[in-house]
Amino acid sequence: MKTNSLLNSVTLIVCLICSLATVTNVVAQKKGSTRLKMYYEKLANNDKKISIILNKGKGLDITGVENAEIILQTIDKEDKLKLTSLKTNSNGETALIIEANYVFPIDEEGFSIIEAKYNGNDSLKSAKKQIKFIDLSLEVSLDVVDSVKQVTVYAFEKDSIGTLKPIEGIKLSIGVKRLFSTLYLNQIETNSKGIGTMEFPNDIAGDSIGNITLIIKINDHNDYGTITKSVIKNWGTIIDYNTTTSERSLFGDEAPMWMIISVIIILSGAWYHFIIAIFKVLKIKKLELKA
């Protein structure tokens, strides 16, 4: 009886130790979580840019995953077509620019779907992210109507057979490109015909021939992503930034006129009063006889 009891106790302890070791091992092998973010942007030249960020960690410890391989693929119904694979930089970022003439497969609702996939490694979990977008196009026309400069933007979708479908209610930010950022002038919304208009101000500074770069932008729309369109037009006021500075007169052949005039005024003023003082003293000599 005693022998059985001792055996049971030993067996229980061994089982407990094995369980503990197993749990510890499982905890030790737990992989870190990762998260993919994707953004779609249609550039001014109609190229499409897919930006991807791969992060790891949680809360304040979120950091980018460096040198991770991201596989990009399009989804056409059930099929997945690999576009390319990219490596992330030190911030966990990477991007793909797709030429304007590339045709994405679309679903019944007109959406194109792109999937980014990270397969993970020994310490990080895999991650996957999809984005859907509709290829919206913007056409801009700049006209002067009764001396009023007018910006007209037409927003439309093109279906698979090439029919144009105007899009209503799109908010467009309109601005001009400055040296370091964009100066936004107004935000307009397209009507039922997909058209939005804005009167362009007359006092926007342009370059040396009055050219300005007009920027029309849709910011992070749920369906259309970010779309930027730019047009160059000579609607700005002419400013020659390369103004030539006047010659450094001290090293020129001739003194500047202001200098000559100043010297003459100062010196002649001083000497004139000096001569007056001399004459006053000369009169003293004449008065000697009177004394």
Partner: peptide, 27 residues
């Protein structure tokens, strides 16, 4: 220079000194 300290001479000399003092400062 023929100075005899008569009022006219004194006045002239003082005027000359005032002028000289005035131009000496900016100079």
């Amino acid at each position: 220079f023929g100075y005899q300290d008569i009022p006219e001479q004194r006045k002239l000399l003082n005027q000359a000194l005032d002028i000289m003092a005035a131009i000496i400062i900016p100079t």
